[in-house]
Design a protein around this nucleic acid. Sequence first.
DNA 1: GTACGACTTAAAGTCCACTTTAAGGCAAGG
DNA 2: CCTTGCCTTAAAGTGGACTTTAAGTCGTAC
Lengths: 147, 147
Amino acid sequence: MPQMTISTVARQVGLQSSAIRYYEQIGLLPRAQRISGQRRYDTTVLHRLAVVQRARQLGFTLQEIRQLFFGFRPGARASERWQKLSRKKLVELEAQASAIRTMQRLLREMIEKCRCDSLEQCGKGIFSSGCAPTASRVREDVKRRRS
Amino acid sequence: MPQMTISTVARQVGLQSSAIRYYEQIGLLPRAQRISGQRRYDTTVLHRLAVVQRARQLGFTLQEIRQLFFGFRPGARASERWQKLSRKKLVELEAQASAIRTMQRLLREMIEKCRCDSLEQCGKGIFSSGCAPTASRVREDVKRRRS
DNA sequence: GTACGACTTAAAGTCCACTTTAAGGCAAGG
DNA sequence: CCTTGCCTTAAAGTGGACTTTAAGTCGTAC
């Protein structure tokens, strides 16, 4: 199978042809050989795209994947490349995870503690720091219930 | 303080003026009163923006924040609005968190187990399912070391 | 009267990873 | 010869949340 068209490759790796053209355009794939204007690929492109797909799955951007391929001295081992980028990505992901945990905590507090009638009221509470979740809000709430 | 200019409001809530104009444009803020062409605000806009900022902090998109304001029957309590949207958002965030955990697991496996010399080699392994992390990859690795 | 600073608008630009569109080329089959 | 189907290119569009730019207005200070 030395000569595949772009759509054959696309099918094999689960991408759209346009994505493959795009990867070539941004330099992630080498310029493909053309036969009467049409791209022809051999199996090495499948391995290349497998790496790209796996890297995407690991959360890498196309920019970072370009670094994986071209951002090291030519002799650098693949495992070394992966390690360097992966450690960096793990740090990033931990930051993202932490941000998500913060949002989850705040959302649960909101569900549990907000008793505001109006968003205007809620906004006042937040503006003087901490709508639903705060004691001040609860105190206001008590006042409201009494009236 | 019944009349603030846009930059005064922006300073108070920690936004750029352009963001406030944008919020007006997409209907998140009501059209502000103009005095000789310039927007003038009273303190209620600070409460409105406090709600917007808090909602952003909770992970809501501007679209969703618009729903918070306008996506309920007019009498709906603020707490009810927050609850409905927050529960939905918690589900979304849990999905995101799960995706991140998957990436973290795969990244750690990659760091720990990939011994590939070349990305081409790595790609072959992934293409026949599972570069670094798999047993097949390890076996290939053994073969390579012997040769 | 003119320079300054802060404001206005509409429109375009940014980032990311593509997809879609428009206009066209090429080979095989009927 | 003409249709069909797959391919090509460059350019524009998508979504989200804004920012930036260009060109202009307004009031105030000097």
